[in-house]
Amino acid sequence: MIRVLFIAILTASIFSGCVSKPKIHPNTSFIKINLPKNIEESLISHDITLAINMPTGTAIKSSKITYIDSNNLRKNYAYHRWSNFLTLQIQEFFVHSIAKTNLVFDVAKAQNRVDPTLILEIDISEFAQYIDKNENSKVVVSGSMRFLNPKEKKALFSKTFIYEEKMENLGVNELSLAYDRVFALWLKDTLKIIDNLGESYAR
């Protein structure tokens, strides 16, 4: 009798697995840095071959989306990621968007076999979303950038930057749009610097 009872309980416990709630992790979704839609072609094309180095900084050596809460603790989004490592995305963003403007003769990644006349180095110190107690949020990208003469290994121009964009609501879509706005501003400033350098510095 005890054996029959044991078998019945065992069978019930085995088949109870069929009705239990599955513990499956939700699928991860990805976002990326988008090129600005309204990139204007430059009227002047400077005789510069620009190489963009792989950006450095620990804040961007990951594909996790980081936010900083009201207690100043760094955390990551659970179900969303950058579609690629930020360091690669930022480099590609500048290569493609500057190429689209036709502001310079050529623009390439530093890993390419091109002999550059100007090198852009980027170092990122902060790349995160800040959320305060009242759930007001903003994205912050800060760091430094410099343009180098590859022959003399001398900085032609150097500056630090900090870009902040407020978010109207919390959420990944709003976050992605805020980062897009930051990159549009950053690109605009970078193009101005290249234009100024182009007038004084050429191959």
Partner: peptide, 10 residues
């Protein structure tokens, strides 16, 4: 299981 970020939805 990681806790979702504020405003993070699936």
């Amino acid at each position: 299981m990681q806790a979702p970020a504020p405003g993070e939805e699936l």
